[in-house]
């Protein structure tokens, strides 16, 4: 008994030490981990709706409580939580129930590898870029599986569309990321940021940054590329069969986490992360990522949805050549020592 009590005391002491000294638990649970991400998610939902309302000459969320109705997302979440869960008779039950949770894990996993500053990183990893991109790439597969598991025509068409879309944007995305890895000669996010010391990669590799940005918006499934969920054609697409909290989880993972993760990825890869780095480096990263998120959310107020045909054509005709040209330019520039460091 004494041992158990001693163990608990030691764990508590460790936790206190950890939390007060920004140890791994603090990073995973508070910042930049779970607590921070979920609070940010609430603010993002509210901000998106408020911003769209401003553009569209209306008020937006107001009555749910808090200043300017900032508690609206929480009210929505409570509503989702109390709604009835309906599992279609024809659905693949195990997959149908498991997929929302898997999607949340997959969507949030890249957060572990992405640095807010040199030390503010949950899991420092020399192959962080590969890991993060691998998880990002995994998500469309979940959409396809969801469409299949729902056993609904609309969901299935949505899933197929997501797969189609991925065929379009995946290669440009990876080729652009390869340009970054080549220029910084590393897959380590910290090194990637450090090697953007004089000039950001967005300035030295504008073509790659552009291709990555467009592919990234498509990966998020945001307007104008929200093709898999096309509400008007296929009735909300791949998650049409979901209700209640499972739908809520999908909204969080597919709409918010991907927005946050990919914006942060773009910031780290192309906008120099925490550089110039004086003051509070985490704040630099956050502000840059926030501006990217805001820009992407703003598309909602400006663009309609494109068609799958047009998007895939654009991805193969324009994005892929752009990213390959970018890669070749980077490859050539590495020989001149433009990106610093040892020449290959």
């Amino acid at each position: 008994m004494m041992d158990v009590a001693g163990l608990i005391i030691r764990i508590v002491k460790y936790l206190i030490y950890d939390l007060t000294h920004m140890g791994p638990v603090f990073k995973a649970v508070i910042f930049p981990g779970l607590a921070f991400v979920f609070i940010l998610a609430i603010v993002l939902v509210w901000l998106e709706r408020k911003m769209a309302a401003k553009v569209q000459m209306r008020i937006g969320p107001l009555y749910a409580g808090g200043p300017e109705g900032i508690l609206q997302p929480i009210a929505d979440f409570i509503k989702f939580a109390f709604k009835e869960l309906i599992i279609p008779d024809q659905a693949d039950k195990l997959l149908f129930i498991a997929l929302p949770i898997v999607s949340l894990v997959v969507a949030m996993a890249p957060i572990a590898f992405m640095p807010y500053s040199r030390y503010m990183i949950i899991s420092p990893n020399p192959y962080g870029l590969l890991f993060a991109m691998a998880f990002v790439t995994l998500f469309p597969l979940i959409i396809l599986l969801t469409g299949w598991a729902s056993n609904s025509k609309y969901a299935f068409i949505g899933g197929i569309r997501a797969a189609y879309q991925q065929i379009g944007y995946e290669l440009p995305m990876w080729f652009s990321a390869l340009g970054v890895a080549l220029a910084s000669r590393s897959f380590d996010f910290v090194k990637i940021v450090e090697s953007q010391q004089p000039l950001w990669f967005a300035l030295t590799q504008p073509l790659g940054a552009l291709a990555f940005f467009i592919a990234m918006v498509a990966e998020m499934g945001r307007i104008p590329f929200d093709i898999p969920e096309a509400e008007q054609e296929i009735a909300a697409g791949w998650f049409v069969e979901y209700t209640g909290i499972m739908f809520g989880i999908y909204m969080v993972s597919a709409m918010l986490m991907k927005l946050y993760v990919l914006s942060l990825l773009f910031t780290v890869m192309y906008l120099g992360g925490w550089l110039p780095g004086w003051g509070l480096p985490e704040a630099w990263t956050f502000v840059k990522a926030f501006i990217v998120m805001f820009l992407i959310m703003f598309f909602r107020a400006v663009f309609p949805r494109t068609r799958i045909k047009t998007f895939v054509n654009m991805a193969w005709d324009k994005l892929l050549p752009l990213s390959i040209i970018n890669l070749l330019i980077v490859f050539a520039l590495t020989f001149t020592g433009f990106y610093g460091g040892v020449q290959p």
């Binding site: 769209a52 209306r58 309609p304």
Partner: peptide
């Protein structure tokens, strides 16, 4: 507008 998922057109013209 809303059928093309352009919500701004929807809100503006209804306003």
């Amino acid at each position: 507008g809303i059928f093309l998922n352009h919500s701004t057109m929807f809100m503006w013209s209804f306003g």
